[in-house]
Write a protein that binds this DNA or RNA. Structure first.
Length: 274
DNA sequence: CGTATGCCCTGCGCGC
DNA sequence: TGCGCGCAGGGCATAC
């Protein structure tokens, strides 16, 4: 599932291909993936524009197009965005295709169709609500333990649910929330507001470390994620709890447990995260 | 407001 | 071998 490290890896790979490329053609095979504006307006508004340097906010990929327009993409569960030669056969769930002026194609593929595009205009016109209300970037130096403590304070929800709340902190999904809580030695179901100061500091460090480590390994390919050059990530083998139910904890050997927290499948070590 | 639940959607793995 | 069911989950809509 694309989370911050996967979208960051995607941004970095697309940065090698998109800047300076003009969109010659937009094919929308599945109109539902165009969230704003209507697909025909989208198509004509994007055609002829030139990509700038890709940016990222949380799990949102931001592709500047000039003229104060930005193509905003969210991959949700199964979205893939990559540059490829037109001779490569289209994958089954290729829903949107941008023909570029060097002959290559930027393709959007999405098996579960949860993801899609917003074309954002001047003054954030058309921006998805989730982008407007997005919390701080966890890798920003300004995100310190105090900011995390502020997001957790007074909340009775499980600490994991707060980590997944994009308004509290941007970019964590199910994999890295579980991994950060393991690294911090904190039980995922603990009420967020009950964490001691030292635990918040540990969690803050753990979030940063796991995200940085995952970016260094170009993200996690669990089932569907590929980067902007259609390559898988290498972080899967580094996972300490996610998708390891019943397997021995890498630290203490206890079997990794799987429970439901905040409606999400949650992996943790019952001994290291008591 | 804060919290909980269900929905969207498809493919896969499991049990029978 | 085939079929149906449950599960996977990010973000949002709705309910309480």
């Amino acid at each position: 599932m694309p989370e911050l490290p996967e979208v960051e890896t995607l941004r970095r790979t697309l940065a090698r291909h998109l800047p300076g490329r003009q969109v010659r053609r937009v094919d929308v095979m599945r109109p539902g993936q165009i969230r704003h504006p209507d697909p025909e307006t989208f198509r004509t508004a994007v055609t002829g524009r030139t990509f700038g340097d890709p940016q990222r906010r949380g799990k949102y990929l931001l592709l500047p197009l000039g003229g104060d327009r930005t193509l905003v993409c969210h991959l949700r569960m199964s979205g893939r965005l990559y540059v490829v030669s037109p001779e490569v056969p289209r994958a089954t769930h290729t829903h949107v295709l941008f023909g570029l002026d060097d002959g290559t194609e930027l393709r959007y593929e999405d098996q579960r169709t949860f993801g899609g595009f917003h074309l954002v205009g001047p003054g954030d016109e058309g921006a998805p609500e989730g982008l407007r209300t997005l919390g701080p970037e966890p890798l920003d130096p300004a995100w310190d333990p105090g900011r995390l403590a502020g997001a957790l304070r007074g909340r009775r929800a499980p600490v994991k649910a707060v980590l997944l709340d994009q308004r509290a902190v941007a970019g964590l999904g199910n994999i890295y929330a579980d991994e950060a809580l393991f690294r911090a030695g904190i039980h995922p179901a603990r009420p967020a507001g009950d964490l001691a100061g030292a635990e918040v500091v540990r969690l803050h460090r753990a979030v940063r470390e796991v995200l940085a480590d995952a970016i260094a390994r170009r993200g996690t390919t669990f089932s569907l994620y590929l980067d902007g050059e259609a390559r898988p990530g290498e972080f899967y083998s580094e996972l300490r709890v996610y998708d390891r139910e019943g397997e021995p904890c890498r630290r203490c050997g206890s079997p990794i447990a799987k429970i439901r927290v905040g409606g999400r499948g949650t992996h943790f070590c019952p001994r290291c995260q008591a």
